[in-house]
C-alpha cells in the first residue's frame, strides 16, 4: 500500500512538466526514504534523477518498496487537471496495475480522482559515482534558461568555460558567434539573484543545446540552478525542489573536434 499526500501539489505538476519531454516512460521508485526516479533519454545522452524525500510529504505511507512504471506524458496530462494550489495524493495498492492521483482543493470543496494504468518498464539503472567537480556555478535559473534559449538561435552546441573571471557560454553557427560571460555576483540583498562560482581548476566543456534547453523546463521549480563541471564528465544541472529534494539532469559532453 502506497499513499503519498503532498500539500504543495503544484510542485509535482512542475516536476512532470520538466521531465516529460526528455523521457517517455519511467519507473518511479517508492521506498521509506522517498519517491524517486532515474531515467535516461532514448539516445542515452542525458539522464534525469529526481528525489522527493518522504519528510517533504504531509503523509507518507509506503509499506514496501514499489516501482511504478508510468508514461510521463500521460502522468503530466493527469496532473495538469490539478489546480496549482491543490493537495495531491498518489495512491497505489501493492498488486495493482494502476495508480490513483487525488486532487483536493485547499478548502476541500472539490475532490477529484484520476486513475492511470501502470506499465511494465525495463529500465536500465546507472551507477553514478560520487565526483569531485572542478567547477560549480550557482546562478539564477531564469538567467541560465535565457542564455540557453538565446544561444540556441545561433548554434547547436554551447561551450561552457569556467575561469576565475567568470563563467562563459559560447556558441557558433552559420550566421556567426556569440559569447556570454557571467561574473561572480554575491548579491547579498537578493540571494536568489546571486551568481557564485566555486572553481578548483579552469574547465571548458561542450554540450548539445537541445538538451540544455530541455533541462530548463525545470526553471519554475527553483530560483537558482547549480551547474557542476569536470573535464570529461557529464555536467550536472540541478534544481532544488522546495525543501524536499532535487531534480538533477546529467548530460554527456560532446567530443571535442
Amino acid at each position: 500500500m502506497l499513499e503519498l499526500r503532498l500539500v504543495q501539489g503544484g510542485l509535482l505538476k512542475k516536476v512532470l512538466e520538466s521531465l516529460k519531454d526528455l523521457v517517455n516512460d519511467a519507473n518511479f521508485d517508492c521506498s521509506a526514504s522517498g519517491f524517486s526516479l532515474q531515467a535516461m533519454d532514448s539516445s542515452h545522452v542525458a539522464l534525469v534523477a529526481l528525489l522527493l524525500r518522504s519528510e517533504g510529504f504531509e503523509h507518507y505511507r509506503c509499506d514496501r518498496n514499489l516501482s511504478l512504471g508510468m508514461n510521463l506524458n500521460n502522468m503530466a496530462k493527469m496532473l495538469k487537471c490539478a489546480a496549482n494550489d491543490d493537495i495531491v495524493t498518489i495512491k497505489a495498492d501493492d498488486a495493482s496495475d494502476s495508480v490513483t492521483f487525488m486532487f483536493e482543493s485547499p478548502n476541500q470543496d472539490k475532490i477529484a480522482d484520476f486513475e492511470m494504468k501502470l506499465m511494465d518498464i525495463d529500465s536500465e539503472h546507472l551507477g553514478i559515482p560520487e565526483a569531485e567537480f572542478q567547477a560549480i556555478v550557482r546562478m539564477p535559473s531564469a538567467e541560465f534558461a535565457r542564455i540557453c534559449k538565446d544561444l540556441s538561435t545561433i548554434g547547436d552546441t554551447v561551450v561552457i568555460s569556467v575561469t576565475k573571471e567568470g563563467v562563459k557560454f559560447s556558441t557558433r553557427g552559420d550566421i556567426g558567434t556569440a559569447n556570454i560571460v557571467c561574473r561572480q555576483n554575491p548579491s547579498i540583498d537578493k540571494p536568489e539573484e546571486a551568481t557564485i562560482i566555486e572553481m578548483e581548476e579552469p574547465v571548458s566543456l561542450t554540450f548539445a543545446l537541445r538538451y540544455m534547453n530541455s533541462f530548463t523546463k525545470a526553471t519554475p521549480l527553483a530560483n537558482q540552478v547549480t551547474i557542476s563541471l569536470s573535464a570529461d564528465l557529464p555536467v550536472v544541472v540541478e534544481y532544488r525542489v522546495a525543501e524536499m529534494g532535487y531534480i538533477r539532469f546529467y548530460l554527456a559532453p560532446k567530443i571535442e573536434e
Binding site: 546507472l126 551507477g127 557529464p234 554527456a252
Partner: peptide, 14 residues
Amino acid sequence: GGGQYSLGKFFLFG
C-alpha cells in the same frame, strides 16, 4: 560539429 559521448562511457549500467 563533433560527436556526442553517451552516458555509458562515464556511468556503469547496473
